[in-house]
Design a protein around this nucleic acid. Structure first.
Lengths: 214, 214
DNA sequence: AACTAAACGGACGATGTCATCCACTTACCG
DNA sequence: CGGTAAGTGGATGACATCGTCCGTTTAGTT
Protein backbone atom coordinates (compact mmCIF):
# COMPACT_ATOMS: atom_id res chain seq x y z
CA UNK A 1 0.00 0.00 0.00
CA UNK A 2 1.40 3.41 -0.89
CA UNK A 3 1.20 6.19 1.60
CA UNK A 4 2.90 4.28 4.32
CA UNK A 5 6.10 4.12 2.34
CA UNK A 6 9.00 4.67 4.68
CA UNK A 7 8.51 8.23 5.93
CA UNK A 8 12.25 8.32 6.73
CA UNK A 9 13.04 8.71 3.05
CA UNK A 10 11.09 11.95 2.88
CA UNK A 11 12.48 15.41 2.91
CA UNK A 12 12.30 17.16 6.27
CA UNK A 13 9.40 19.45 5.39
CA UNK A 14 7.50 16.61 3.82
CA UNK A 15 7.89 14.48 6.90
CA UNK A 16 6.68 17.38 9.03
CA UNK A 17 3.63 17.83 6.83
CA UNK A 18 2.95 14.12 6.92
CA UNK A 19 2.69 14.27 10.69
CA UNK A 20 0.48 17.32 10.61
CA UNK A 21 -1.80 15.53 8.16
CA UNK A 22 -2.06 12.47 10.36
CA UNK A 23 -2.85 14.56 13.39
CA UNK A 24 -5.46 16.51 11.47
CA UNK A 25 -6.96 13.30 10.14
CA UNK A 26 -7.32 11.89 13.62
CA UNK A 27 -9.05 15.03 14.80
CA UNK A 28 -11.33 15.42 11.83
CA UNK A 29 -12.22 11.75 11.58
CA UNK A 30 -12.89 11.58 15.30
CA UNK A 31 -15.14 14.60 15.12
CA UNK A 32 -16.94 14.14 11.83
CA UNK A 33 -16.60 10.46 11.11
CA UNK A 34 -14.62 8.56 8.59
CA UNK A 35 -16.18 10.13 5.52
CA UNK A 36 -15.38 13.70 6.32
CA UNK A 37 -14.20 15.65 3.27
CA UNK A 38 -10.55 15.17 2.44
CA UNK A 39 -10.30 18.90 1.98
CA UNK A 40 -11.31 19.38 5.60
CA UNK A 41 -8.38 17.29 6.69
CA UNK A 42 -6.07 19.22 4.41
CA UNK A 43 -7.33 22.56 5.65
CA UNK A 44 -6.96 21.55 9.26
CA UNK A 45 -3.43 20.34 8.57
CA UNK A 46 -2.64 23.61 6.83
CA UNK A 47 -1.62 21.96 3.59
CA UNK A 48 -3.08 21.79 0.12
CA UNK A 49 -5.18 18.88 -0.98
CA UNK A 50 -2.50 17.85 -3.44
CA UNK A 51 -0.08 17.27 -0.61
CA UNK A 52 -2.63 15.16 1.14
CA UNK A 53 -3.34 13.04 -1.91
CA UNK A 54 0.32 12.67 -2.75
CA UNK A 55 1.03 11.28 0.67
CA UNK A 56 -2.12 9.21 1.03
CA UNK A 57 -3.66 8.32 -2.30
CA UNK A 58 -6.85 6.93 -0.84
CA UNK A 59 -9.07 7.62 2.11
CA UNK A 60 -8.39 4.12 3.35
CA UNK A 61 -4.64 4.67 3.31
CA UNK A 62 -5.06 7.86 5.29
CA UNK A 63 -7.43 6.34 7.81
CA UNK A 64 -5.28 3.30 8.31
CA UNK A 65 -2.17 5.38 8.85
CA UNK A 66 -3.97 7.80 11.12
CA UNK A 67 -5.20 5.09 13.41
CA UNK A 68 -2.04 3.03 13.43
CA UNK A 69 -1.28 4.15 16.94
CA UNK A 70 -4.66 3.10 18.28
CA UNK A 71 -4.37 -0.17 16.41
CA UNK A 72 -1.00 -0.73 18.01
CA UNK A 73 -2.50 -0.10 21.43
CA UNK A 74 -5.13 -2.70 20.73
CA UNK A 75 -2.51 -5.12 19.54
CA UNK A 76 -0.54 -4.54 22.71
CA UNK A 77 -3.64 -5.18 24.78
CA UNK A 78 -4.05 -8.35 22.81
CA UNK A 79 -0.57 -9.50 23.72
CA UNK A 80 -1.19 -8.59 27.33
CA UNK A 81 -4.37 -10.59 27.32
CA UNK A 82 -2.55 -13.59 25.95
CA UNK A 83 0.10 -13.23 28.62
CA UNK A 84 -2.30 -12.68 31.48
CA UNK A 85 -2.34 -15.64 33.87
CA UNK A 86 -6.02 -14.99 34.48
CA UNK A 87 -7.54 -15.50 31.03
CA UNK A 88 -10.92 -14.09 31.97
CA UNK A 89 -9.39 -10.92 33.27
CA UNK A 90 -7.15 -10.65 30.24
CA UNK A 91 -10.07 -10.98 27.89
CA UNK A 92 -12.06 -8.42 29.80
CA UNK A 93 -9.24 -5.90 29.83
CA UNK A 94 -8.73 -6.37 26.11
CA UNK A 95 -12.36 -5.85 25.26
CA UNK A 96 -12.62 -2.86 27.54
CA UNK A 97 -9.69 -1.27 25.79
CA UNK A 98 -11.07 -1.89 22.32
CA UNK A 99 -14.60 -0.84 23.24
CA UNK A 100 -13.38 2.36 24.79
CA UNK A 101 -11.35 3.29 21.75
CA UNK A 102 -14.20 2.40 19.44
CA UNK A 103 -16.54 4.67 21.29
CA UNK A 104 -14.11 7.51 21.87
CA UNK A 105 -12.67 7.88 18.39
CA UNK A 106 -15.47 8.32 15.97
CA UNK A 107 -13.56 7.07 12.98
CA UNK A 108 -11.74 4.23 14.65
CA UNK A 109 -14.48 1.62 14.55
CA UNK A 110 -14.71 1.32 10.78
CA UNK A 111 -10.96 1.18 10.44
CA UNK A 112 -10.61 -1.34 13.18
CA UNK A 113 -13.42 -3.57 12.04
CA UNK A 114 -12.22 -3.38 8.50
CA UNK A 115 -8.82 -4.63 9.58
CA UNK A 116 -10.05 -7.12 12.12
CA UNK A 117 -8.67 -9.54 12.98
CA UNK A 118 -5.57 -8.43 11.13
CA UNK A 119 -5.60 -5.39 13.34
CA UNK A 120 -4.61 -7.43 16.31
CA UNK A 121 -2.04 -9.32 14.35
CA UNK A 122 0.76 -6.87 14.74
CA UNK A 123 3.76 -8.90 13.73
CA UNK A 124 2.29 -12.27 14.29
CA UNK A 125 1.72 -14.67 11.48
CA UNK A 126 -1.36 -14.34 9.39
CA UNK A 127 -4.45 -15.79 11.09
CA UNK A 128 -2.49 -15.81 14.29
CA UNK A 129 -4.76 -13.18 15.76
CA UNK A 130 -7.92 -15.11 15.15
CA UNK A 131 -6.23 -18.19 16.47
CA UNK A 132 -4.95 -16.33 19.49
CA UNK A 133 -8.40 -15.03 20.20
CA UNK A 134 -9.77 -18.55 19.99
CA UNK A 135 -7.06 -19.70 22.35
CA UNK A 136 -7.87 -16.90 24.77
CA UNK A 137 -11.51 -17.88 24.72
CA UNK A 138 -10.67 -21.54 25.13
CA UNK A 139 -8.46 -20.87 28.12
CA UNK A 140 -11.08 -18.67 29.76
CA UNK A 141 -13.67 -21.33 29.23
CA UNK A 142 -11.45 -23.99 30.72
CA UNK A 143 -10.86 -21.73 33.69
CA UNK A 144 -14.61 -21.76 34.20
CA UNK A 145 -14.92 -18.07 33.41
CA UNK A 146 -17.04 -18.47 30.32
CA UNK A 147 -20.20 -20.47 29.83
CA UNK A 148 -19.99 -23.60 27.75
CA UNK A 149 -22.08 -22.28 24.91
CA UNK A 150 -19.96 -19.19 24.52
CA UNK A 151 -18.71 -18.78 20.99
CA UNK A 152 -15.77 -16.72 19.74
CA UNK A 153 -18.22 -15.02 17.40
CA UNK A 154 -19.76 -13.49 20.49
CA UNK A 155 -16.72 -11.24 20.65
CA UNK A 156 -17.64 -9.98 17.24
CA UNK A 157 -21.18 -9.55 18.42
CA UNK A 158 -20.02 -7.48 21.34
CA UNK A 159 -17.81 -5.28 19.20
CA UNK A 160 -20.56 -4.61 16.69
CA UNK A 161 -23.05 -3.87 19.43
CA UNK A 162 -20.59 -1.52 21.02
CA UNK A 163 -20.05 0.26 17.73
CA UNK A 164 -23.72 1.15 17.82
CA UNK A 165 -22.94 3.46 20.72
CA UNK A 166 -20.53 5.59 18.74
CA UNK A 167 -21.94 8.94 17.81
CA UNK A 168 -23.18 9.64 21.29
CA UNK A 169 -21.48 12.48 23.12
CA UNK A 170 -18.16 11.31 24.41
CA UNK A 171 -18.95 10.95 28.11
CA UNK A 172 -22.32 9.38 27.48
CA UNK A 173 -20.86 6.89 25.06
CA UNK A 174 -18.14 5.96 27.49
CA UNK A 175 -20.55 5.33 30.32
CA UNK A 176 -22.87 3.38 28.04
CA UNK A 177 -20.02 1.29 26.71
CA UNK A 178 -18.90 0.34 30.18
CA UNK A 179 -22.35 -0.65 31.23
CA UNK A 180 -22.83 -2.64 28.05
CA UNK A 181 -19.61 -4.46 28.66
CA UNK A 182 -20.56 -5.23 32.23
CA UNK A 183 -23.90 -6.65 31.17
CA UNK A 184 -22.23 -8.73 28.51
CA UNK A 185 -19.64 -10.13 30.82
CA UNK A 186 -22.15 -11.09 33.40
CA UNK A 187 -24.11 -12.88 30.71
CA UNK A 188 -20.95 -14.49 29.37
CA UNK A 189 -20.20 -15.96 32.75
CA UNK A 190 -23.59 -17.07 33.89
CA UNK A 191 -24.72 -20.38 32.54
CA UNK A 192 -28.47 -20.56 32.37
CA UNK A 193 -30.82 -23.43 31.81
CA UNK A 194 -32.39 -22.35 28.52
CA UNK A 195 -30.16 -22.53 25.47
CA UNK A 196 -29.06 -19.46 23.53
CA UNK A 197 -29.98 -18.88 19.93
CA UNK A 198 -27.08 -20.04 17.77
CA UNK A 199 -24.19 -17.65 17.16
CA UNK A 200 -23.95 -15.96 13.79
CA UNK A 201 -20.76 -15.84 11.77
CA UNK A 202 -20.54 -12.16 11.02
CA UNK A 203 -18.56 -10.41 8.38
CA UNK A 204 -16.80 -7.84 10.43
CA UNK A 205 -15.42 -6.00 7.47
CA UNK A 206 -18.94 -5.73 6.13
CA UNK A 207 -19.72 -2.84 8.40
CA UNK A 208 -21.66 -0.46 6.26
CA UNK A 209 -22.79 3.05 6.93
CA UNK A 210 -25.97 1.80 8.52
CA UNK A 211 -27.57 4.56 10.55
CA UNK A 212 -26.93 7.52 8.35
CA UNK A 213 -28.40 10.77 9.34
CA UNK A 214 -32.10 11.21 9.12
CA UNK B 1 -45.53 18.45 8.37
CA UNK B 2 -46.37 18.58 4.67
CA UNK B 3 -46.23 15.38 2.67
CA UNK B 4 -48.60 13.57 4.89
CA UNK B 5 -51.45 15.88 4.05
CA UNK B 6 -54.58 13.85 3.67
CA UNK B 7 -53.91 11.61 0.68
CA UNK B 8 -57.65 11.25 0.22
CA UNK B 9 -57.80 14.72 -1.28
CA UNK B 10 -55.47 13.73 -4.07
CA UNK B 11 -56.39 12.86 -7.59
CA UNK B 12 -56.55 9.15 -8.30
CA UNK B 13 -53.29 8.99 -10.25
CA UNK B 14 -51.54 11.06 -7.64
CA UNK B 15 -52.68 8.76 -4.87
CA UNK B 16 -51.49 5.78 -6.88
CA UNK B 17 -48.10 7.38 -7.39
CA UNK B 18 -47.89 8.23 -3.74
CA UNK B 19 -48.22 4.58 -2.87
CA UNK B 20 -45.65 3.55 -5.44
CA UNK B 21 -43.25 6.11 -4.02
CA UNK B 22 -43.70 4.84 -0.48
CA UNK B 23 -43.17 1.27 -1.56
CA UNK B 24 -40.07 2.23 -3.52
CA UNK B 25 -38.76 4.22 -0.58
CA UNK B 26 -39.14 1.26 1.74
CA UNK B 27 -37.26 -0.96 -0.69
CA UNK B 28 -34.50 1.48 -1.49
CA UNK B 29 -34.01 2.66 2.09
CA UNK B 30 -33.98 -0.91 3.33
CA UNK B 31 -31.37 -1.86 0.76
CA UNK B 32 -29.14 1.19 0.62
CA UNK B 33 -29.78 2.94 3.87
CA UNK B 34 -31.57 6.12 4.72
CA UNK B 35 -29.39 8.42 2.65
CA UNK B 36 -29.85 6.74 -0.66
CA UNK B 37 -30.30 9.24 -3.50
CA UNK B 38 -33.80 10.59 -3.82
CA UNK B 39 -33.52 10.01 -7.56
CA UNK B 40 -33.08 6.30 -6.91
CA UNK B 41 -36.35 6.21 -5.08
CA UNK B 42 -38.04 8.12 -7.87
CA UNK B 43 -36.61 5.84 -10.53
CA UNK B 44 -37.69 2.73 -8.67
CA UNK B 45 -41.15 4.17 -8.25
CA UNK B 46 -41.29 4.99 -11.93
CA UNK B 47 -41.97 8.66 -11.35
CA UNK B 48 -40.01 11.83 -11.91
CA UNK B 49 -38.08 13.47 -9.09
CA UNK B 50 -40.43 16.43 -9.20
CA UNK B 51 -43.33 14.19 -8.27
CA UNK B 52 -41.35 12.78 -5.42
CA UNK B 53 -40.40 16.20 -4.08
CA UNK B 54 -43.90 17.55 -4.55
CA UNK B 55 -45.33 14.77 -2.42
CA UNK B 56 -42.52 14.64 0.14
CA UNK B 57 -40.58 17.90 0.36
CA UNK B 58 -37.86 16.49 2.58
CA UNK B 59 -36.08 13.23 3.04
CA UNK B 60 -37.36 13.11 6.58
CA UNK B 61 -40.96 13.44 5.47
CA UNK B 62 -40.50 10.61 3.02
CA UNK B 63 -38.75 8.36 5.50
CA UNK B 64 -41.28 8.98 8.21
CA UNK B 65 -44.20 8.27 5.89
CA UNK B 66 -42.51 5.21 4.45
CA UNK B 67 -41.98 3.61 7.83
CA UNK B 68 -45.29 4.57 9.32
CA UNK B 69 -46.47 0.99 9.04
CA UNK B 70 -43.48 -0.42 10.88
CA UNK B 71 -43.84 2.29 13.49
CA UNK B 72 -47.47 1.31 13.91
CA UNK B 73 -46.43 -2.31 14.38
CA UNK B 74 -44.04 -1.25 17.10
CA UNK B 75 -46.70 0.84 18.73
CA UNK B 76 -49.07 -2.12 18.65
CA UNK B 77 -46.42 -4.31 20.24
CA UNK B 78 -46.07 -1.63 22.86
CA UNK B 79 -49.75 -1.79 23.66
CA UNK B 80 -49.60 -5.55 23.78
CA UNK B 81 -46.71 -5.39 26.17
CA UNK B 82 -48.63 -3.07 28.44
CA UNK B 83 -51.60 -5.40 28.34
CA UNK B 84 -49.61 -8.58 28.89
CA UNK B 85 -50.29 -10.07 32.32
CA UNK B 86 -46.68 -11.26 32.43
CA UNK B 87 -44.73 -7.99 32.30
CA UNK B 88 -41.38 -9.68 31.69
CA UNK B 89 -42.74 -11.58 28.74
CA UNK B 90 -44.44 -8.51 27.40
CA UNK B 91 -41.26 -6.50 27.56
CA UNK B 92 -39.30 -9.22 25.88
CA UNK B 93 -41.78 -9.61 23.06
CA UNK B 94 -41.78 -5.87 22.51
CA UNK B 95 -38.03 -5.62 22.33
CA UNK B 96 -37.76 -8.64 20.09
CA UNK B 97 -40.18 -7.04 17.69
CA UNK B 98 -38.37 -3.72 17.64
CA UNK B 99 -34.92 -5.29 17.38
CA UNK B 100 -35.98 -7.51 14.53
CA UNK B 101 -37.41 -4.62 12.58
CA UNK B 102 -34.37 -2.49 13.28
CA UNK B 103 -32.09 -5.14 11.92
CA UNK B 104 -34.22 -6.17 9.00
CA UNK B 105 -35.07 -2.80 7.56
CA UNK B 106 -31.90 -0.91 6.95
CA UNK B 107 -33.46 2.51 7.09
CA UNK B 108 -35.84 1.90 9.94
CA UNK B 109 -33.45 2.38 12.82
CA UNK B 110 -32.68 6.05 12.19
CA UNK B 111 -36.32 6.86 11.67
CA UNK B 112 -37.37 4.95 14.72
CA UNK B 113 -34.70 6.32 16.99
CA UNK B 114 -35.32 9.80 15.73
CA UNK B 115 -38.95 9.50 16.67
CA UNK B 116 -38.45 7.61 19.88
CA UNK B 117 -40.24 7.63 22.22
CA UNK B 118 -42.87 9.45 20.20
CA UNK B 119 -42.82 6.49 17.86
CA UNK B 120 -44.43 4.31 20.45
CA UNK B 121 -46.90 6.97 21.35
CA UNK B 122 -49.48 6.24 18.76
CA UNK B 123 -52.52 8.03 20.00
CA UNK B 124 -51.52 8.27 23.59
CA UNK B 125 -50.82 11.54 25.24
CA UNK B 126 -47.45 13.09 24.83
CA UNK B 127 -44.80 11.53 27.09
CA UNK B 128 -47.19 8.69 27.63
CA UNK B 129 -44.87 6.32 25.80
CA UNK B 130 -41.92 7.06 27.99
CA UNK B 131 -44.13 6.83 31.00
CA UNK B 132 -45.61 3.57 29.80
CA UNK B 133 -42.18 2.15 29.27
CA UNK B 134 -41.22 3.14 32.78
CA UNK B 135 -44.37 1.49 34.06
CA UNK B 136 -43.62 -1.67 32.11
CA UNK B 137 -40.16 -1.77 33.58
CA UNK B 138 -41.48 -1.10 37.04
CA UNK B 139 -44.01 -3.88 36.81
CA UNK B 140 -41.44 -6.34 35.52
CA UNK B 141 -39.12 -5.41 38.33
CA UNK B 142 -41.83 -5.88 40.92
CA UNK B 143 -42.59 -9.26 39.42
CA UNK B 144 -38.99 -10.17 40.13
CA UNK B 145 -38.14 -10.43 36.44
CA UNK B 146 -35.65 -7.61 36.37
CA UNK B 147 -32.70 -6.97 38.63
CA UNK B 148 -32.95 -4.13 41.09
CA UNK B 149 -30.34 -1.99 39.43
CA UNK B 150 -31.97 -2.21 36.05
CA UNK B 151 -32.61 1.21 34.60
CA UNK B 152 -35.09 2.19 31.88
CA UNK B 153 -32.14 3.69 30.04
CA UNK B 154 -30.91 0.15 29.57
CA UNK B 155 -33.66 -0.27 27.02
CA UNK B 156 -32.10 2.55 25.09
CA UNK B 157 -28.74 0.91 25.51
CA UNK B 158 -30.08 -2.32 24.08
CA UNK B 159 -31.67 -0.60 21.12
CA UNK B 160 -28.52 1.31 20.26
CA UNK B 161 -26.40 -1.81 20.61
CA UNK B 162 -28.78 -3.67 18.39
CA UNK B 163 -28.61 -0.96 15.79
CA UNK B 164 -24.91 -1.70 15.50
CA UNK B 165 -25.86 -5.00 13.90
CA UNK B 166 -27.68 -3.41 11.02
CA UNK B 167 -25.78 -3.57 7.78
CA UNK B 168 -25.01 -7.22 8.17
CA UNK B 169 -26.62 -9.53 5.66
CA UNK B 170 -30.22 -10.09 6.61
CA UNK B 171 -30.04 -13.61 7.99
CA UNK B 172 -26.82 -12.97 9.84
CA UNK B 173 -28.16 -9.83 11.39
CA UNK B 174 -31.32 -11.58 12.48
CA UNK B 175 -29.45 -14.39 14.16
CA UNK B 176 -27.05 -11.97 15.79
CA UNK B 177 -29.87 -9.79 17.04
CA UNK B 178 -31.64 -12.72 18.63
CA UNK B 179 -28.50 -13.87 20.37
CA UNK B 180 -27.78 -10.36 21.55
CA UNK B 181 -31.25 -10.06 22.96
CA UNK B 182 -30.94 -13.41 24.73
CA UNK B 183 -27.66 -12.38 26.32
CA UNK B 184 -29.14 -9.09 27.39
CA UNK B 185 -32.19 -10.61 28.93
CA UNK B 186 -30.23 -13.13 30.87
CA UNK B 187 -28.11 -10.30 32.20
CA UNK B 188 -31.20 -8.22 32.92
CA UNK B 189 -32.63 -10.97 35.06
CA UNK B 190 -29.59 -12.15 36.91
CA UNK B 191 -28.66 -10.12 39.91
CA UNK B 192 -24.96 -10.36 40.59
CA UNK B 193 -22.89 -9.32 43.56
CA UNK B 194 -20.75 -6.64 41.93
CA UNK B 195 -22.51 -3.41 41.02
CA UNK B 196 -22.94 -2.23 37.45
CA UNK B 197 -21.42 0.95 36.13
CA UNK B 198 -24.08 3.66 36.26
CA UNK B 199 -26.54 3.95 33.38
CA UNK B 200 -26.07 6.75 30.88
CA UNK B 201 -28.88 9.01 29.78
CA UNK B 202 -28.56 8.78 26.06
CA UNK B 203 -29.93 11.07 23.43
CA UNK B 204 -31.64 8.59 21.21
CA UNK B 205 -32.34 11.10 18.52
CA UNK B 206 -28.68 11.96 18.44
CA UNK B 207 -27.88 8.95 16.37
CA UNK B 208 -25.41 10.18 13.83
CA UNK B 209 -23.99 8.48 10.82
CA UNK B 210 -21.18 6.96 12.86
CA UNK B 211 -19.53 4.14 11.01
CA UNK B 212 -19.57 5.37 7.49
CA UNK B 213 -17.91 3.26 4.92
CA UNK B 214 -14.19 2.91 5.00
C1' DA C 1 -65.96 16.10 -26.50
C1' DA C 2 -64.14 20.04 -24.42
C1' DC C 3 -62.28 22.41 -20.70
C1' DT C 4 -59.37 23.22 -16.61
C1' DA C 5 -56.85 22.50 -12.79
C1' DA C 6 -54.08 19.06 -10.96
C1' DA C 7 -50.30 16.27 -11.76
C1' DC C 8 -46.35 14.95 -14.25
C1' DG C 9 -41.32 14.36 -15.53
C1' DG C 10 -37.17 15.73 -17.62
C1' DA C 11 -34.02 19.50 -17.94
C1' DC C 12 -31.36 22.46 -15.44
C1' DG C 13 -28.49 25.44 -12.24
C1' DA C 14 -26.46 25.10 -7.74
C1' DT C 15 -23.62 22.86 -4.60
C1' DG C 16 -20.07 19.94 -2.72
C1' DT C 17 -16.58 16.41 -3.13
C1' DC C 18 -13.00 14.07 -5.55
C1' DA C 19 -8.57 13.69 -7.45
C1' DT C 20 -5.32 15.56 -10.97
C1' DC C 21 -2.40 18.96 -13.12
C1' DC C 22 1.01 22.42 -13.24
C1' DA C 23 3.47 26.57 -12.23
C1' DC C 24 5.87 28.08 -8.16
C1' DT C 25 8.77 27.29 -3.84
C1' DT C 26 12.07 25.13 -0.87
C1' DA C 27 15.19 21.78 1.25
C1' DC C 28 19.33 19.50 0.55
C1' DC C 29 23.87 18.61 -1.72
C1' DG C 30 28.11 19.89 -3.76
C1' DC D 1 26.18 30.14 -2.78
C1' DG D 2 23.70 27.91 -6.98
C1' DG D 3 21.48 23.92 -9.06
C1' DT D 4 17.95 20.60 -8.98
C1' DA D 5 14.82 17.39 -7.66
C1' DA D 6 11.41 16.95 -4.25
C1' DG D 7 7.67 19.20 -2.44
C1' DT D 8 3.81 22.44 -2.44
C1' DG D 9 -0.89 24.50 -3.03
C1' DG D 10 -4.47 26.42 -5.58
C1' DA D 11 -6.93 26.06 -9.79
C1' DT D 12 -9.48 22.93 -12.27
C1' DG D 13 -12.50 19.42 -14.61
C1' DA D 14 -15.19 15.36 -13.66
C1' DC D 15 -18.85 13.65 -11.19
C1' DA D 16 -22.94 13.00 -8.19
C1' DT D 17 -26.85 14.77 -5.78
C1' DC D 18 -30.10 18.23 -4.71
C1' DG D 19 -34.27 20.63 -5.41
C1' DT D 20 -36.75 23.86 -8.72
C1' DC D 21 -38.77 25.37 -12.98
C1' DC D 22 -41.75 24.92 -16.72
C1' DG D 23 -43.85 22.99 -20.83
C1' DT D 24 -46.73 18.87 -21.42
C1' DT D 25 -50.08 15.33 -20.12
C1' DT D 26 -54.12 13.61 -17.87
C1' DA D 27 -58.07 12.97 -14.59
C1' DG D 28 -62.40 14.56 -13.54
C1' DT D 29 -66.24 17.52 -14.65
C1' DT D 30 -69.89 19.65 -17.52
Amino acid sequence: MPGDADPAGLRADARRNRERILEAAREVFAAQGIDAPMSAVARRAGVGVATLYRRFPTRTALATAAFTEQLALCAAAFDEALADPDPGHGLYALLEKVCTTQVTDRGFAPVFLDQFPDALDHGHERDCAEEGLARLVQRAREAGQLRDDFDPADITLLLLANSGLAGQPRETALAASRRLLAYFFQAFQTQRPGSLPPPAAMELCEIRRPPGRL
